[in-house]
Amino acid sequence: MPDLPLLLAALAVLLPLARCFGWAFTRLGQPAVLGEISCGLVVGIALQTGSGLPGSVETALDAFAQLGLIVFLFGVGARLAPSITPARITAAFVPALGAIVVPVALGALLALLLATRHAPAGVTPFVLFAAAAMAVTAFPVLARILAERRMLDDPDGRCALTAAALTDAAAWAALAFVAASVHNGATVWSMPALIPFLLGLTVLARPWFGRALDRLSAPAAASTMVVLACAGAAVTGAIGLHAAIGAFLIGAAAGRPASRHDAAAVTAPVVSLLVPLYFVLIGRKVDLGDLDAVLVTETLAIIAVAVLAKGGGAYLGARLAGQEPRRAAVFATLMNTRGVTELVFLGVGLGLGVIDSAFYTAMVAMALVTTAMTGPLLNHLERNKVTRDA
C-alpha cells in the first residue's frame, strides 16, 4: 500500500482508538491520559507481531504528535503565567520550596545509584534530568482536578496551582540547561537566534499584544497562537534545545496580557485531536522487553522515592508555612500529581538521549502510578473531613 493511504488509515485507527481507551479510563475515575498510554502499549504489542509500519509513516505520525505537543505546551505556558504573580509567589514560596528541594535531592541520590545502567549521555546530564523529573507536577492535570472539585478560587487551590507553576518552571529551566549541555558544540552558529527570541518574549508579554488579539476572531486568534507556538519551537529546536521548550516559553509570555481569547481554549481543537496521538506514541515507546527482575526493583524504588520525596517535601513545606495537617496533606496529594507534564518531560529526555528506554519505562510507570493515586487520596481526605465535621 502507498505511504499516504497507509498514513491516513493509521490516523483513522489510532485517533478513535485513543479516544475509546481514554473514555474507558475516565469511566473508571482515572485521567484519560492513562487510557491513551495503555492504547499505545496495546498498539505496540500488536505491531510487534506483524511487519510494523514503514519508516516514512512512523515519521509522519510523530510529526503530527509533535505538533499536538507543541500547541499543548503553548497552552500550558499560557495557563501557568497568571499564577506567577508576586502575591501568589509569596504565599506559595515555602510550600513550593519543599516540593522542589526534597524531590531534587532524593532524585539526584537515586540517579547516582542508577547512572551506571541508564546514562547514555553521561552521568551529569542523567542525574540533572532525573532530579528535575522527580520535581515535576502536572500543572494541566492539577488545574483540571481543582476545577472539577471547585477549588480554583479556594486558597488551598490557588496555593497548589502557584506552587505547581513554580516547580514546573524550575523543572523546565533545568531541562533547558540539560539540553544545552548535551548539544553544546553542534549549534554554536545558531545561538545568536536567542537574542531576537528573548526580545520576542518581552514583546508578547506587553499589554498591547492582548489588545491586538482581542481584535481578531476566534479562528484567527487560534491560527496566530499556533503560528507563535511553532515559531518558538522552531527557534529552540534549531538552537539545540528541545522544540517543546520554545513553545512553553512563548505560551508563558503570550499568557501574560489579558485577552478575551484564552490561549488554552482557542487552541483546544488542535490539542484535543493530536495530543492523544502523542500519548499513544509514548505508550508505544515503553519497551516491556526491558523488564527484568532488576528493572522491576528499580521501578519500585523510583515510585517509592517519588511519592516519599514529592509528597513528603510538599507536606513539610506546607506545614512550615503554617498550614494545618489536613490542608498540608491535601497540598501534598495535589503536588504529587505527575500526569501529562511528567510524560512530556520524559519524552523530551528520551529524545535528547540523556536517558535510556529502560529508565524511561520505569519513570513512565511512576508517572502513571502517582497520577492514579491522586483522586482516591483526595476522596479519602474529603471523607475524613466530612466524618470529623459530623
Score class of each variant (00 low, 15 high):
Arg149Leu: 10
Leu73Trp: 03
Leu346Asn: 00
Gly317Ala: 11
Phe93Ser: 06
Asp62Trp: 05
Ala119Ser: 15
Thr187Arg: 12
Ala247Leu: 10
Leu175Asn: 06
Val13Arg: 03
Pro257Asn: 01
Thr85Glu: 14
Phe177Gln: 09
Gly157Lys: 10
Val123Cys: 06
Leu213Glu: 13
Pro2Ile: 10
Phe177Trp: 13
Val43Ser: 13
Val354Pro: 09
Ala121Ser: 15
Leu295Cys: 14
Ala321Phe: 07
Pro269Ser: 14
Pro103Gly: 05
Pro86Arg: 13
Phe331Val: 07
Thr371His: 06
Thr90Glu: 12
Ser38Pro: 02
Ala160Pro: 00
Ala309Phe: 02
Ala105Cys: 14
Gly22Glu: 07
His183Asn: 14
Arg326Glu: 11
Gly240Ser: 07
Val280Tyr: 10
Ala243Asn: 11
Leu350Gln: 05
Leu346Lys: 00
Met366Lys: 02
Pro207Leu: 09
Ser223Val: 12
Gly98Tyr: 08
Val305His: 11
Thr137Leu: 01
Arg388Asn: 12
Val270Asn: 03
Gln66Glu: 14
Ala218Pro: 04
Gly35Ile: 10
Val136Met: 06
Gln30Thr: 10
Ile195Arg: 02
Ala111Ser: 12
Leu28Lys: 09
Arg206Tyr: 06
Gly347Glu: 01
Ala81Lys: 08
Glu342Gly: 00
Ala12Pro: 00
Val188Ile: 13
Pro376Tyr: 08
Met225Gln: 11
Ala60Arg: 07
Glu298Asn: 07
Ala143Ser: 14
Leu14Ser: 03
Gly317Phe: 06
Thr85Gly: 09
Ser259Val: 00
Val182Thr: 08
Gly349Asn: 09
Met373Asn: 12
Met366Pro: 01
Leu381Cys: 08
Ala108Ile: 09
Phe126Ala: 12
Ala372Trp: 09
Asp62Gln: 14
Val226Lys: 10
Ala10Asn: 11
Ile45Gly: 08
Pro269Cys: 13
Leu204Asp: 11
Thr202Trp: 03
Leu216Gln: 12
Gly107Val: 06
Gly35Lys: 11
Gly98Asp: 02
Asp214Arg: 12
